[in-house]
Amino acid sequence: MFLLQPCSFLFAAIMAGNLIELKAVSYRYPTGKQALTEVDLALPEGRKIALMGANGAGKSTLLLLLNGIYKPTNGELHYRGKQYRYNRKALQELRQNVGIVFQESDNQLVAPSVYEEVAFGLSNLHTDKKWIREQVENYLDYFDLQELKHHSPHQLSSGQKKRICLASILSMEPELIVCDEPASNLDPQNARLTFELLEAQNKNGKTLLISTHDVNQAYAWADLVVLLKEGRVLDMGSPKQVFGNAEALAEAGLEQPLLVKLARMYQPALAADELPGNETELVNRLTKKLCTDL
Protein backbone atom coordinates (compact mmCIF):
# COMPACT_ATOMS: atom_id res chain seq x y z
CA MET A 1 0.00 0.00 0.00
CA PHE A 2 1.37 3.38 -0.98
CA LEU A 3 0.68 4.94 2.41
CA LEU A 4 3.11 2.70 4.18
CA GLN A 5 5.91 2.87 1.67
CA PRO A 6 9.07 4.34 3.16
CA CYS A 7 9.78 7.60 1.45
CA SER A 8 12.76 9.86 1.84
CA PHE A 9 11.46 12.97 0.25
CA LEU A 10 13.28 15.61 2.29
CA PHE A 11 15.80 16.38 -0.42
CA ALA A 12 13.08 16.45 -3.04
CA ALA A 13 11.00 18.80 -0.90
CA ILE A 14 13.86 21.22 -0.50
CA MET A 15 14.54 21.16 -4.23
CA ALA A 16 10.89 21.25 -5.25
CA GLY A 17 9.17 24.42 -6.39
CA ASN A 18 5.91 25.97 -5.36
CA LEU A 19 2.77 23.90 -5.48
CA ILE A 20 0.39 26.85 -5.37
CA GLU A 21 1.02 30.53 -5.94
CA LEU A 22 -1.37 33.37 -5.23
CA LYS A 23 -0.67 36.57 -7.13
CA ALA A 24 -2.36 39.70 -5.80
CA VAL A 25 -5.46 37.71 -4.89
CA SER A 26 -8.43 39.58 -3.48
CA TYR A 27 -11.80 38.21 -2.50
CA ARG A 28 -14.95 40.08 -1.67
CA TYR A 29 -18.06 38.24 -0.43
CA PRO A 30 -21.34 38.85 -2.26
CA THR A 31 -22.43 40.74 0.88
CA GLY A 32 -19.68 43.28 0.12
CA LYS A 33 -17.33 42.27 2.91
CA GLN A 34 -13.70 42.34 1.77
CA ALA A 35 -12.16 39.09 3.03
CA LEU A 36 -8.75 39.13 1.30
CA THR A 37 -6.81 42.01 -0.21
CA GLU A 38 -3.87 41.68 -2.62
CA VAL A 39 -2.52 38.47 -1.15
CA ASP A 40 0.77 37.27 -2.60
CA LEU A 41 1.68 33.85 -1.34
CA ALA A 42 3.65 30.82 -2.47
CA LEU A 43 3.12 27.38 -0.94
CA PRO A 44 6.28 25.30 -1.39
CA GLU A 45 5.79 21.63 -2.16
CA GLY A 46 6.31 19.03 0.54
CA ARG A 47 6.34 21.54 3.41
CA LYS A 48 4.26 21.98 6.55
CA ILE A 49 2.70 25.41 6.47
CA ALA A 50 0.77 27.08 9.28
CA LEU A 51 -1.69 29.81 8.42
CA MET A 52 -2.22 32.03 11.44
CA GLY A 53 -4.34 34.99 12.31
CA ALA A 54 -7.08 36.21 14.59
CA ASN A 55 -10.75 35.46 13.99
CA GLY A 56 -11.96 37.11 10.79
CA ALA A 57 -8.42 37.47 9.38
CA GLY A 58 -9.41 35.61 6.22
CA LYS A 59 -7.91 32.19 6.92
CA SER A 60 -10.97 30.10 6.06
CA THR A 61 -11.65 32.20 2.94
CA LEU A 62 -8.10 31.63 1.75
CA LEU A 63 -8.46 27.87 2.24
CA LEU A 64 -11.66 27.80 0.20
CA LEU A 65 -9.97 29.80 -2.58
CA LEU A 66 -7.22 27.18 -2.76
CA ASN A 67 -9.80 24.43 -3.29
CA GLY A 68 -11.62 26.43 -5.96
CA ILE A 69 -14.83 26.79 -3.94
CA TYR A 70 -14.43 30.56 -4.14
CA LYS A 71 -13.21 32.37 -7.23
CA PRO A 72 -11.03 35.41 -6.53
CA THR A 73 -12.56 38.77 -7.38
CA ASN A 74 -9.08 39.96 -8.41
CA GLY A 75 -5.71 38.32 -8.93
CA GLU A 76 -4.64 34.85 -10.01
CA LEU A 77 -4.04 31.47 -8.46
CA HIS A 78 -1.57 29.04 -10.01
CA TYR A 79 -1.33 25.30 -9.40
CA ARG A 80 2.09 23.95 -10.42
CA GLY A 81 2.59 27.04 -12.55
CA LYS A 82 -0.76 26.75 -14.35
CA GLN A 83 -3.44 29.31 -13.72
CA TYR A 84 -6.62 28.07 -12.04
CA ARG A 85 -9.52 27.51 -14.40
CA TYR A 86 -13.02 27.30 -13.06
CA ASN A 87 -14.70 25.02 -15.57
CA ARG A 88 -16.16 21.76 -14.35
CA LYS A 89 -13.35 19.47 -15.48
CA ALA A 90 -10.57 21.71 -14.17
CA LEU A 91 -12.33 22.07 -10.82
CA GLN A 92 -12.68 18.28 -10.50
CA GLU A 93 -8.94 17.94 -11.05
CA LEU A 94 -8.12 20.78 -8.68
CA ARG A 95 -10.36 19.47 -5.91
CA GLN A 96 -8.75 16.07 -6.19
CA ASN A 97 -5.31 17.66 -5.80
CA VAL A 98 -6.27 20.06 -3.03
CA GLY A 99 -8.15 18.19 -0.29
CA ILE A 100 -9.74 20.25 2.43
CA VAL A 101 -10.68 19.07 5.92
CA PHE A 102 -13.19 21.43 7.50
CA GLN A 103 -13.11 22.72 11.04
CA GLU A 104 -16.47 21.28 12.05
CA SER A 105 -16.58 17.59 11.22
CA ASP A 106 -20.38 17.58 11.38
CA ASN A 107 -20.50 20.00 8.47
CA GLN A 108 -18.46 17.62 6.36
CA LEU A 109 -20.05 14.28 7.18
CA VAL A 110 -22.77 13.59 4.68
CA ALA A 111 -23.15 9.83 4.28
CA PRO A 112 -25.14 7.54 6.59
CA SER A 113 -22.22 5.18 7.26
CA VAL A 114 -18.47 5.54 7.75
CA TYR A 115 -17.78 3.32 4.73
CA GLU A 116 -19.91 5.46 2.43
CA GLU A 117 -18.37 8.63 3.84
CA VAL A 118 -14.85 7.47 3.03
CA ALA A 119 -16.02 6.36 -0.41
CA PHE A 120 -17.89 9.60 -1.14
CA GLY A 121 -15.11 11.64 -2.78
CA LEU A 122 -13.73 8.61 -4.63
CA SER A 123 -17.17 7.75 -6.03
CA ASN A 124 -17.44 11.29 -7.39
CA LEU A 125 -14.07 10.97 -9.10
CA HIS A 126 -13.87 7.41 -10.34
CA THR A 127 -16.17 4.81 -11.84
CA ASP A 128 -14.19 1.63 -11.15
CA LYS A 129 -16.09 0.34 -8.10
CA LYS A 130 -13.66 -2.49 -7.45
CA TRP A 131 -10.73 -0.11 -7.24
CA ILE A 132 -12.73 2.33 -5.06
CA ARG A 133 -13.63 -0.48 -2.66
CA GLU A 134 -9.98 -1.55 -2.38
CA GLN A 135 -8.96 2.03 -1.74
CA VAL A 136 -11.67 2.51 0.89
CA GLU A 137 -10.65 -0.70 2.68
CA ASN A 138 -7.01 0.46 2.70
CA TYR A 139 -7.89 3.77 4.27
CA LEU A 140 -10.30 2.22 6.77
CA ASP A 141 -7.41 -0.02 7.87
CA TYR A 142 -4.94 2.84 7.98
CA PHE A 143 -7.19 5.08 10.07
CA ASP A 144 -8.28 2.18 12.28
CA LEU A 145 -11.93 2.56 11.26
CA GLN A 146 -12.71 -1.01 10.19
CA GLU A 147 -14.81 -1.76 13.25
CA LEU A 148 -16.84 1.41 12.75
CA LYS A 149 -17.45 1.13 9.04
CA HIS A 150 -21.17 0.36 9.34
CA HIS A 151 -21.78 2.98 12.04
CA SER A 152 -23.39 6.33 11.42
CA PRO A 153 -20.56 8.91 11.53
CA HIS A 154 -22.80 11.39 13.34
CA GLN A 155 -23.06 9.10 16.36
CA LEU A 156 -19.30 8.84 16.92
CA SER A 157 -16.91 10.87 19.07
CA SER A 158 -15.23 14.08 17.84
CA GLY A 159 -11.88 12.32 17.48
CA GLN A 160 -13.41 9.51 15.42
CA LYS A 161 -15.29 12.03 13.28
CA LYS A 162 -12.06 13.89 12.58
CA ARG A 163 -10.35 10.63 11.57
CA ILE A 164 -13.25 9.87 9.20
CA CYS A 165 -12.98 13.33 7.63
CA LEU A 166 -9.24 12.88 7.18
CA ALA A 167 -9.70 9.40 5.70
CA SER A 168 -12.37 10.70 3.35
CA ILE A 169 -10.09 13.44 2.03
CA LEU A 170 -6.87 11.43 1.96
CA SER A 171 -8.52 8.58 0.06
CA MET A 172 -8.74 11.01 -2.86
CA GLU A 173 -4.92 11.21 -2.73
CA PRO A 174 -4.53 14.98 -2.80
CA GLU A 175 -1.11 16.59 -3.18
CA LEU A 176 -1.99 19.42 -0.83
CA ILE A 177 -3.91 18.69 2.37
CA VAL A 178 -5.61 21.75 3.78
CA CYS A 179 -6.94 21.56 7.33
CA ASP A 180 -9.02 24.25 8.95
CA GLU A 181 -8.30 24.10 12.69
CA PRO A 182 -7.49 20.37 12.75
CA ALA A 183 -7.31 20.20 16.54
CA SER A 184 -10.46 22.17 17.34
CA ASN A 185 -12.95 20.34 19.60
CA LEU A 186 -10.43 17.58 20.19
CA ASP A 187 -8.94 16.46 23.48
CA PRO A 188 -5.10 16.55 23.71
CA GLN A 189 -4.76 12.85 22.87
CA ASN A 190 -6.92 13.05 19.76
CA ALA A 191 -5.28 16.33 18.73
CA ARG A 192 -1.88 14.62 18.97
CA LEU A 193 -3.17 11.65 17.00
CA THR A 194 -4.50 13.95 14.27
CA PHE A 195 -1.17 15.72 13.98
CA GLU A 196 0.65 12.38 13.90
CA LEU A 197 -1.55 11.28 11.00
CA LEU A 198 -0.85 14.55 9.20
CA GLU A 199 2.87 14.22 9.95
CA ALA A 200 2.86 10.75 8.38
CA GLN A 201 1.28 12.21 5.25
CA ASN A 202 3.96 14.87 5.08
CA LYS A 203 6.64 12.18 5.35
CA ASN A 204 5.02 10.57 2.31
CA GLY A 205 5.54 13.77 0.35
CA LYS A 206 2.22 15.55 0.83
CA THR A 207 2.18 19.29 1.36
CA LEU A 208 0.25 20.33 4.45
CA LEU A 209 -1.44 23.64 5.14
CA ILE A 210 -3.23 24.11 8.43
CA SER A 211 -5.05 27.09 9.76
CA THR A 212 -4.72 27.45 13.52
CA HIS A 213 -4.74 29.81 16.47
CA ASP A 214 -2.48 27.56 18.51
CA VAL A 215 0.86 29.37 18.43
CA ASN A 216 2.61 26.68 20.48
CA GLN A 217 1.53 23.94 18.10
CA ALA A 218 2.44 25.97 15.02
CA TYR A 219 5.86 26.88 16.43
CA ALA A 220 6.74 23.27 17.10
CA TRP A 221 5.18 21.80 13.97
CA ALA A 222 5.45 24.12 10.97
CA ASP A 223 8.24 24.67 8.46
CA LEU A 224 6.69 27.88 7.25
CA VAL A 225 4.32 30.29 9.02
CA VAL A 226 2.04 32.77 7.27
CA LEU A 227 0.57 35.52 9.41
CA LEU A 228 -2.68 37.11 8.23
CA LYS A 229 -4.34 40.27 9.43
CA GLU A 230 -7.57 41.67 8.05
CA GLY A 231 -7.17 39.84 4.76
CA ARG A 232 -3.53 40.78 4.17
CA VAL A 233 -0.28 38.86 4.68
CA LEU A 234 1.40 40.53 7.63
CA ASP A 235 4.47 38.33 7.90
CA MET A 236 5.78 35.08 6.47
CA GLY A 237 8.83 32.96 7.21
CA SER A 238 10.21 30.22 9.40
CA PRO A 239 8.53 29.78 12.82
CA LYS A 240 11.53 31.33 14.57
CA GLN A 241 11.40 34.41 12.34
CA VAL A 242 7.65 34.93 12.59
CA PHE A 243 7.22 34.08 16.26
CA GLY A 244 10.36 35.99 17.17
CA ASN A 245 8.67 39.14 15.91
CA ALA A 246 6.55 40.09 18.91
CA GLU A 247 5.27 43.29 17.35
CA ALA A 248 3.89 41.60 14.24
CA LEU A 249 2.27 38.90 16.39
CA ALA A 250 0.63 41.49 18.63
CA GLU A 251 -0.60 43.35 15.57
CA ALA A 252 -2.13 40.13 14.27
CA GLY A 253 -3.87 39.60 17.61
CA LEU A 254 -1.75 36.62 18.62
CA GLU A 255 0.65 35.87 21.45
CA GLN A 256 4.19 34.55 21.36
CA PRO A 257 4.60 30.81 21.95
CA LEU A 258 5.48 29.80 25.51
CA LEU A 259 8.95 28.62 24.45
CA VAL A 260 9.74 32.00 22.92
CA LYS A 261 8.41 33.84 25.95
CA LEU A 262 10.51 31.73 28.33
CA ALA A 263 13.62 32.08 26.18
CA ARG A 264 13.19 35.83 26.03
CA MET A 265 12.59 36.02 29.78
CA TYR A 266 16.12 35.00 30.52
CA GLN A 267 17.68 36.52 27.39
CA PRO A 268 15.57 39.52 26.27
CA ALA A 269 17.88 40.39 23.39
CA LEU A 270 17.84 36.88 21.92
CA ALA A 271 17.72 37.06 18.09
CA ALA A 272 14.97 35.22 16.24
CA ASP A 273 17.40 32.70 14.71
CA GLU A 274 18.75 31.84 18.15
CA LEU A 275 15.39 30.92 19.64
CA PRO A 276 15.09 27.33 20.94
CA GLY A 277 13.43 24.90 18.58
CA ASN A 278 11.87 22.75 21.30
CA GLU A 279 11.53 22.25 25.05
CA THR A 280 14.67 20.09 25.34
CA GLU A 281 16.80 22.75 23.72
CA LEU A 282 15.49 25.41 26.09
CA VAL A 283 16.02 23.23 29.17
CA ASN A 284 19.58 22.44 28.03
CA ARG A 285 20.33 26.11 27.58
CA LEU A 286 18.89 27.02 30.98
CA THR A 287 20.81 24.21 32.69
CA LYS A 288 24.01 25.30 30.98
CA LYS A 289 23.43 28.91 32.06
CA LEU A 290 22.73 27.80 35.62
CA CYS A 291 25.93 25.74 35.72
CA THR A 292 27.96 28.66 34.36
CA ASP A 293 26.43 31.05 36.90
CA LEU A 294 27.21 28.68 39.75
Partner: peptide
Protein backbone atom coordinates in the same frame (compact mmCIF):
# COMPACT_ATOMS: atom_id res chain seq x y z
CA UNK B 1 -14.87 20.24 -2.10
CA UNK B 2 -15.02 16.48 -2.64
CA UNK B 3 -16.09 16.85 -6.26
CA UNK B 4 -19.79 16.15 -5.67
CA UNK B 5 -21.72 16.44 -8.88
CA UNK B 6 -25.40 16.74 -9.61
CA UNK B 7 -26.21 13.24 -8.38
CA UNK B 8 -25.45 11.90 -4.95
CA UNK B 9 -23.04 9.00 -5.22
CA UNK B 10 -22.85 6.73 -2.21
CA UNK B 11 -20.92 3.56 -2.65
CA UNK B 12 -22.02 0.86 -0.26
CA UNK B 13 -20.09 -2.06 1.06
Amino acid sequence: ARCAGENYCFLQN
